[in-house]
Computed example of a mutant assay.
Amino acid sequence: MAVQHGIWKIGAQPQALKPVKLDTELLLEEQISKDISILNANWLLIGRQVYTDFGKPLDLLAVDASGSLIVIELKKHRTPRDVVAQTIDYASWVESLSSNRIVSIYKQFAEKHDLRERNFDQAFQAKFGYLPSEQDINSSHQMVVVAAELDASTERIINYLNDKANVAVNAVFFSVFEDAGNQYLSRAWMIDPGETEEKAINVGSKGQWNGEYYGSFGPSYSWEDARRHNFICAGGGNWYSKTLFMVEPGDRVWVNIPKTGYVGVCEVTDRAIVADDFIQPEMTLQGNYRMAADKGEDNADYFVPVKWIKAVPENQAISEVGLFGNQNSIARPKADKWRHTVERLCSIWGLTL
């Protein structure tokens, strides 16, 4: 069934806002290019009308905090078959892009639109709070079809590609509503974007998940706090914290500090809770943590209480070529590299799990 939704004005009697047609999907592209948070607040737009090596421009190109590239293509009155095929075609080109090419794409985009950050590294750090890792940039990619109207045929094709072909493709549907001469955009994702992000990590991995969770512990936090007070944490935006809610008591998480190495493995003892509820007055903490009372629930830090099976000082972190790495706070990798990582860490730390 095609996506449908509406907006009602609250009052003595609910009043449905009048749905109207967008003049052109080019206007929608303009709005998204001016504020990518219309799609996702945790994406950085790095290109618009990016010409591919086969002479056709993809509409929008973005990157998320994990380094995953997102191909964004507007439907623009094309048939479902055409727009999805075109998006996959562009993704096949994006997959082969080198980091130098990505830097060049952003530079051209920044200069054309007179952006404050002209350098890709600077823009990435300004958006996500840390410098990008060479190995993470374009380590995966996602596809998003944007439509002013999403028909049932497009929905069937995208569901098939996700379910049967394990393709990280999603669709977002915008409706336009009018009230007192003002127009409003309303957005609905066809599939939870978090599912698409996780699928992107595991595209090309045909094996089964080994049941072991990967955890990324942000370098802005105090690892000594985590060791002493038995937690892992993430926050500063929903993209960073939401995956913490994947883990449940009894789950194991192998913890990596990006650009430093693996520092421990823990067993989860309770579900994720907001910083305000986890941090107690008697705790002596070296780090600074975002409280919901100050930053709001979406931007607060969230803590997962754990019991450490093994936790080493940061200067004893394990970093080797061939170990799995990703910026996602929590992930369920299916790659062979992940199985190798767990086996290798067990060997180094003398663990039998």
Results as ranks from 00 to 15, higher is better:
residue 162 N to L: 09
residue 164 K to I: 02
residue 166 N to G: 01
residue 166 N to Q: 11
residue 167 V to N: 01
residue 167 V to W: 04
residue 169 V to N: 01
residue 169 V to L: 13
residue 169 V to I: 15
residue 169 V to R: 00
residue 171 A to P: 04
residue 172 V to F: 05
residue 172 V to P: 06
residue 174 F to M: 01
residue 174 F to W: 07
residue 174 F to S: 02
residue 177 F to Y: 11
residue 180 A to I: 03
residue 182 N to Q: 12
residue 182 N to T: 08
residue 184 Y to M: 00
residue 185 L to M: 09
residue 186 S to T: 07
residue 187 R to S: 13
residue 188 A to P: 00
residue 188 A to W: 00
residue 189 W to P: 00
residue 192 D to G: 00
residue 192 D to T: 04
residue 192 D to E: 12
residue 193 P to D: 02
residue 193 P to G: 06
residue 194 G to P: 00
residue 195 E to V: 10
residue 196 T to A: 07
residue 197 E to K: 10
residue 199 K to E: 04
residue 200 A to L: 05
residue 202 N to V: 08
residue 208 Q to D: 14
residue 209 W to T: 03
residue 210 N to D: 13
residue 210 N to R: 07
residue 211 G to Q: 09
residue 212 E to F: 13
residue 213 Y to C: 05
residue 214 Y to P: 01
residue 214 Y to E: 03
residue 215 G to E: 01
residue 216 S to Q: 09
residue 216 S to M: 14
residue 217 F to K: 06
residue 218 G to Q: 12
residue 222 S to I: 10
residue 223 W to H: 09
residue 223 W to E: 06
residue 224 E to V: 12
residue 225 D to C: 11
residue 226 A to V: 10
residue 229 H to E: 13
residue 229 H to A: 01
residue 231 F to M: 11
residue 232 I to H: 04
residue 236 G to H: 12
residue 237 G to W: 10
residue 237 G to Q: 13
residue 237 G to N: 12
residue 241 S to H: 14
residue 242 K to S: 14
residue 244 L to M: 12
residue 244 L to D: 04
residue 245 F to L: 09
residue 247 V to Q: 05
residue 248 E to F: 08
residue 248 E to T: 14
residue 249 P to V: 11
residue 249 P to A: 12
residue 252 R to A: 05
residue 253 V to C: 09
residue 254 W to F: 10
residue 255 V to R: 05
residue 256 N to P: 02
residue 256 N to R: 15
residue 258 P to E: 07
residue 262 Y to Q: 10
residue 263 V to R: 11
residue 270 D to E: 15
residue 272 A to V: 08
residue 273 I to G: 01
residue 273 I to D: 04
residue 275 A to M: 00
residue 276 D to F: 12
residue 277 D to P: 02
residue 277 D to K: 14
residue 277 D to A: 14
residue 278 F to Y: 15
residue 279 I to R: 02
residue 280 Q to W: 06
residue 280 Q to T: 15
residue 280 Q to P: 02
residue 281 P to N: 11
residue 281 P to S: 07
residue 282 E to C: 01
residue 283 M to S: 04
residue 284 T to F: 05
residue 285 L to N: 04
residue 285 L to T: 03
residue 290 R to Y: 06
residue 294 D to K: 13
residue 300 A to G: 03
residue 300 A to I: 06
residue 301 D to T: 08
residue 303 F to C: 03
residue 303 F to K: 04
